[in-house]
Amino acid sequence: MIIDLLRNFFGKKIAQDFDPELAEFRKIGFELKRHIDNIFSRSIAIREVDSGSDNAAEIELNNLGTPHYDIERFGLSFVASPRHADIIVITGAVTHNMALAVKKTFEAMPQPGFVIAVGDDACDGGIYKDSYAVLGGADKILPVDIKIPGNPPTPLQIMKGLLALMEAIKKQKPR
């Protein structure tokens, strides 16, 4: 056991800082935490709804919870029900088959709540814009507060978007 302990201290670390992006991620994360502490009393709960994406945006949102990013340390968590959520993150162009479920999910969220569109197709319909099967971007059926474009946006870009939302909320309601 002592050998294990020593190895942990002096041996090669498994999670290494891979690139400068991670340092920036951390900086934005703690800035976000400061806002969350002030506006939301230390934590916000996010509910993710997929309304017709290609699954890449979901993978990136999932990645936010993995060891390299671990956003729970900043006070953000993904929750299983819209009834627990402060923010709905919507990915993908809104399909006709999914529109009603998206609306119901939004209605189940307690107010005041916020909506974030993640990915090009959630922002304005992306490449599906002219398709018979989609309504267009998320703003066609929900009041979208902030759009994070990208195909899909990287974890860093998503964090920047969340920070922008916090700054916008702060401007709206000074506390």
């Binding site: 309304s51 017709g52 994406s53 290609d54 399909t95 197709d121 398709s131 018979y132 899909p152």
Partner: peptide, 27 residues
Amino acid sequence: YKHRGLEKLAENRNPADCVVIAESISG
């Protein structure tokens, strides 16, 4: 529920422009 109409979307397009449609089948 996620039916986005990809097959129809490709119709009447130049073949070189449809790689993005193939890429968005599944991320």
